[in-house]
Design a protein around this nucleic acid. Structure first.
Lengths: 243, 243
DNA sequence: AAAAATTGTATAAATGTCTGTACAACAATA
DNA sequence: TATTGTTGTACAGACATTTATACAATTTTT
């Protein structure tokens, strides 16, 4: 095993090591014999003591990802091996396409003031009111994404919870308000979960979240809405197809 | 200040708190007077002791983000205030559009075997060889993205380091190999930095990275290449415009 | 059967994290 | 001036993290 530099001083080493090994599974990087190198070797590779490696392995053991046998060695469990063999990375990752329909839980429709960024994009005064929709998309038992739409009051007022139960926001804008949609721009980045986001996505505060800011304008270039969508790590992919 | 649930047990609380407060700046969430609540209040809001809050503030102090005055209070420094006032979140975040040209450092061109995923997409046998290009895009002094292209050997062989100095890979495919490009699909997700990625992007192992898997096929639907692009957190945004 | 490889157990010590408590020093306010 | 609010300093104790060392128990190899 090659040398691996763990240089994040914040997270305790035994967690980092456990997570690093788990990542290897996700990336489909397991050796053919599915064996995990002996503790001494791991200790050398990560530059830590054997005691620390053992703690890391205990974490994986507790999650039933590995089995250890005295005198023999440490191996990935059958479950893990099957997982990497058959479907790599994407097993329990569902893919979210822009237009996809899934179960949507309506959180709130409200009147709020917008941040500077919202006001600037929608080209209104900072004292203006916006209609703000908050929704969480669910895929089965798990929250998948959290969406916050900001619309100028004159657009937003006409849109009801009921519209959004049957249509996407973009469809509603077109059919209910008769807006002819123009450019849609996505800006994708990693941010950290706020208290609010963490709660909605059932993750921890400050966990990394895939954040997509979507700016929608109509055919004549006038801004229509600005949307933030948040995805939890390791659960879903965001897919865009260009022709 | 409302109550904030820090529930990540791995990272020491004083780091989490410091980072949470720093995030507030990034999100442009500062109060009008730019004052940071007194230590007692912070301690209550985060549910920790004052000692721990003080350690968090020491981190911010060390980074010159705050000034503290005995008897008076704790305030964001002028730098931070200017930053949030003028340009919110995006100040030192550059935006990377799909076609953008920046300084590219060529790392390697090599012959490798592909993972199952690569083989499956490019529709070849697992024993087949691929031409693999590794490049790092720089924006000034900082690495911006790390790209790994997998091409079937018959395409890749004809492409040289020199082509890629003057053109993007897509332009090269079109002009040098005469390929008529069809669909381009992006899959976006958060992954964690491997040793290799961490080195190229000058970040730590297991830091979150914005990962984009791009699959390119030609007009008749035949797969042409598969590409992974990695972005470090907090440095760059990835932008996609749809019409 | 003996040796080597590997995991399991135990313990001591240094350092890091966090709480709780107490009081000192400085600044604003009544 | 006295009170209140706020940051600065100090310390003791409970755990968590990490290293280092030694040896036991089990399996594989020689």
């Amino acid at each position: 095993m090659e040398k691996i530099r763990l240089d994040n001083t914040r997270v305790p080493l035994h967690y980092q090591i456990a997570e690093y090994l788990e990542d290897m599974v996700r990336r489909g990087e397991l050796r053919i014999d599915d064996r995990i190198p002996p503790e001494e070797n791991l200790a050398k590779a990560f530059g830590v003591s054997r005691t620390t490696v053992r703690r890391a392995l205990e974490h994986l053991d507790a999650k039933s990802l590995i089995t250890r046998k005295q005198g023999k060695g440490t191996y990935w469990t059958d479950d893990v091996r099957a997982l990497t063999r058959e479907k790599l990375a994407g097993l329990n990752k569902q893919i979210f396409s822009v237009s996809e329909k899934t179960a949507v839980k309506f959180i709130s429709k409200g009147v709020e003031y917008g941040s500077r960024e919202v006001c600037r994009y929608l080209d209104v005064d900072e004292s203006a009111e916006f209609i703000v929709f908050r929704r969480v998309r669910w895929a089965g038992e798990e929250p998948m994404s959290y969406t916050i739409n900001y619309l100028p009051a004159h657009f937003g007022r006409a849109i009801t919870k009921d519209h959004l139960r049957r249509m996407t926001m973009l469809e509603t804008l077109e059919s209910v308000l008769g807006i002819r949609l123009g450019t849609i721009e996505h800006e994708v980045e990693i941010t950290r979960a706020t208290d609010d986001i963490a709660e909605k996505l059932a993750i921890n505060v400050r966990d990394p979240v895939l954040t997509i800011k979507t700016s929608v304008s109509d055919k004549s270039g006038r801004p229509v809405e600005i949307v933030w969508t948040y995805f939890a790590e390791n659960k879903y992919k965001f897919r865009v197809v260009l022709d």
